[in-house]
Simulated scan of single mutants.
Amino acid sequence: MAKQRVGVIGGGQLAWMMGLEAPKSGVEIVVQTPQKTDPAVPTAADCVLAAVADAVGTKALSDRCDVVTFENEFVDLLALAPLETSGVQFCPRLAALEPLLDKYTQRQFLAGHGLPNPPFVTLDDTIANDAVADIAAPIGFPLVMKTRRLGYDGQGTFMIASASELLTTWQRIERPPVLLEAFIPFEKELAVMVARSPSGEIAVYPVVETQQVNQVCRRVIAPAAVPEAVQQRVTAIAHTLIEALDFVGVLGIELFLAPGDEVLVNEVAPRTHNSGHYTLDACETSQFAQQLLAVTGQPLGSTEMTCDRALMVNLLGFETSTSDYAEQRAQLSQIPQAQVYWYGKQGARPGRKLGHVTVCLQAEDDWQNILKKIETLWYPLGES
């Protein structure tokens, strides 16, 4: 019997890892991606060479697979809607994606379902310059300004200290629609991955701590060292959100842990997520295998960890180069229990996610010393 085929819109490292995990789920993947050199092409059974937002390309993709899912949010929902109407099965449904792709409507959706948000407002091009300060006043300063669409890894995100800086920065980026939200003096940043099947079965992964450098995730520590009550609150948020969206697949939720153990949602990613990479080596079912199980209607796998603790460190670009960093990767692979994942991207640049390292640990292991060793091997002096 032929294997089920899952079409994946996007051909970056997330789709590449889905392809690595596809045999465990008994499926094959077909990717829609612009270049034959994109990371996911080698692990896919087939590919459609087309831009991510190209609905004609997605129609060709749908002709080669049983169900279509997403690796990123850079899609055109209006253009995809006729395909869904004609019978193309998208998982998650386009209606489940719609409130999440715009950061302002995402905040509105969360608030509408009683989920904890920072205070927020929006600015768009109908707002006069002399009204900007009044609109921001209920938020107060400092605040965070985010472009409402297409931002990732800190792109389109600005820390704003004053009303004058807000107006100057907004004008400098040519006044796109932006979200303004209160700056949260968090104690930790947390994340959780949650999956849901078409039958409504839900599986929640452990709550993890994420650590950012220059607004890009550098490290993930699983599980997070937080009180049980915080873990339960995050798990409850995950259940409420994925059910409210009627979402099928894997969803990533980033959160702030504020003083007093208050939990607030930072952002929601409607797909597999960087904060869940540790699951490849440290959980019974990885987030990538889980995504494929969910969208093909199979029973979800266990999310239990297979070690006491896991450390995931992103290998971020620190220079503009065409190097494959073979020597550094060989040294990293010599660290006990370390698994090195290299995405095969064509060229490095500062902040670009080139790969990651996962280390599975026992409770007594000194994870902070191992973290220091990884970052010393990878980053030039002064960069870590």
Score class of each variant (00 low, 15 high):
residue 195 A to T: 06
residue 194 V to R: 07
residue 284 E to K: 15
residue 109 F to G: 04
residue 384 S to V: 04
residue 293 L to W: 08
residue 197 S to G: 13
residue 316 L to P: 00
residue 384 S to M: 04
residue 93 R to W: 00
residue 87 G to K: 01
residue 273 H to D: 13
residue 316 L to F: 03
residue 356 H to S: 08
residue 351 G to E: 09
residue 350 P to N: 07
residue 4 Q to S: 14
residue 218 R to L: 15
residue 259 P to C: 08
residue 188 K to C: 06
residue 289 A to L: 08
residue 101 L to A: 10
residue 65 C to R: 01
residue 192 V to D: 11
residue 52 V to Q: 12
residue 215 Q to R: 10
residue 10 G to F: 07
residue 189 E to N: 09
residue 170 W to T: 07
residue 129 N to A: 15
residue 6 V to D: 12
residue 302 S to M: 11
residue 176 P to C: 11
residue 241 L to K: 02
residue 110 L to H: 06
residue 88 V to E: 06
residue 128 A to S: 13
residue 354 L to Q: 04
residue 189 E to G: 11
residue 206 P to F: 14
residue 122 T to Q: 13
residue 20 L to S: 01
residue 349 R to P: 02
residue 102 D to C: 10
residue 202 I to E: 06
residue 255 L to I: 10
residue 135 I to S: 03
residue 209 E to R: 10
residue 182 A to R: 15
residue 351 G to V: 06
residue 97 L to M: 12
residue 79 A to H: 02
residue 84 E to P: 07
residue 154 G to Y: 05
residue 141 F to Y: 15
residue 302 S to W: 06
residue 332 L to H: 01
residue 121 V to E: 11
residue 193 M to Y: 04
residue 124 D to V: 06
residue 309 R to C: 12
residue 350 P to L: 12
residue 110 L to Y: 08
residue 307 C to R: 04
residue 211 Q to L: 15
residue 41 V to Y: 05
residue 15 A to C: 09
residue 99 P to L: 05
residue 136 A to E: 05
residue 161 A to S: 14
residue 140 G to A: 08
residue 255 L to S: 08
residue 283 C to S: 14
residue 260 G to T: 05
residue 21 E to Q: 15
residue 30 V to F: 04
residue 250 V to T: 13
residue 226 V to W: 01
residue 182 A to Q: 15
residue 89 Q to G: 00
residue 170 W to R: 06
residue 117 N to R: 04
residue 46 D to G: 05
residue 373 K to P: 00
residue 163 A to F: 04
residue 369 N to K: 12
residue 21 E to H: 01
residue 251 L to W: 02
residue 364 E to W: 02
residue 24 K to D: 12
residue 344 G to V: 03
residue 105 T to D: 09
residue 226 V to Q: 01
residue 28 E to Y: 00
residue 333 S to N: 07
residue 79 A to T: 11
residue 5 R to I: 14
residue 40 A to H: 04
residue 69 T to G: 03
residue 60 A to V: 14
residue 116 P to W: 08
residue 270 P to D: 12
residue 94 L to P: 12
residue 59 K to D: 09
residue 126 T to P: 06
residue 27 V to D: 08
residue 264 L to P: 01
residue 379 Y to R: 09
residue 325 Y to F: 15
residue 229 A to N: 07
residue 335 I to E: 03
residue 161 A to H: 14
residue 219 R to S: 13
residue 140 G to L: 11
residue 177 P to Y: 00
residue 8 V to K: 05
residue 96 A to H: 06
residue 240 T to K: 13
residue 238 A to N: 05
residue 120 F to H: 13
residue 212 Q to S: 05
residue 214 N to T: 02
residue 23 P to R: 13
residue 122 T to F: 04
residue 93 R to Y: 00
residue 236 A to D: 15
